[in-house]
């Protein structure tokens, strides 16, 4: 398992110049516009993308066929991608927290915002991984775009159709609700991915 995640980091690390440039850009943009959440949001988004990119690299080199001939189970192969996603999100979370506090955001507020972003990032990964395991990158790409269209459309059309922002009592429930959603989605996502991958013919 350790070797699998190391392989993903080696693959992703090959793009390190581009990634560093992107991060630098987000940083500068955020500072220039005094929008501390831009950096965190984009960094989280980047980490979600990188998890998908790791799967794309595997697909390109037909790594799975070779890896399964080694002492690696199909369960290991699936879990390693989830673990990779979590590691990347933790990095984004830490970077975001530090950035927000360093630019003057009140620590508790910074913690909350960072947690929410990491939570949304995690939810995105939980949704996309089973799709990629089932359909691969080519078909999966379009399905994922469609899936992410839904919240975008709701966010856009919602206010026009009279959807109001939830009131304060609901907002207080949000963390617990959010955690619950993440746990349930996590269980569902991993179960689906495992079921799909165990039956896949290589």
């Amino acid at each position: 398992m350790k070797g699998l995640i190391l392989k993903d980091f080696y693959n992703l690390g090959r793009q390190n110049k581009v990634i560093l440039a992107a991060i630098a850009f987000y940083l500068i943009f955020s500072l220039a516009n005094k929008d501390s959440s831009f950096f965190g949001g984009m960094l989280t988004f980047l980490m979600v993308m990188q998890t998908m990119t790791a799967m794309a690299y595997d697909e390109k080199s037909k790594w799975d066929r070779y890896a399964l001939a080694m002492p690696v189970s199909r369960t290991d192969m699936v879990l390693s991608k989830y673990i990779l996603g979590v590691i990347l999100l933790v990095i984004a979370f830490a970077a975001n927290l530090i950035f927000m506090v360093a630019t003057g955001t009140e620590p508790v507020m910074a913690l909350n915002v960072s947690l929410v972003m990491a939570g949304i990032g995690l939810f995105s990964i939980l949704v996309t991984l089973p799709v990629l395991f089932k359909f691969g990158m080519e078909k999966g790409r379009y399905i994922i775009m469609l899936i992410f269209l839904i919240p975008t459309v709701i966010g856009f059309l919602g206010p026009k159709m009279g959807l109001k922002m939830p009131d304060e009592s609901f907002m207080r429930l949000l963390p617990v609700l959010g955690l619950l959603i993440l746990i349930i989605s996590g269980i569902v996502s991993v179960s689906i991915s495992l079921a799909v991958y165990k039956r896949k013919e290589m």
């Binding site: 080696y10 693959n11 390109k60 037909k62």
Partner: peptide
């Protein structure tokens, strides 16, 4: 027959 190592490694 084909090498399955990721090519950037």
């Amino acid at each position: 027959e084909d090498s399955f190592f990721p090519e950037n490694l």
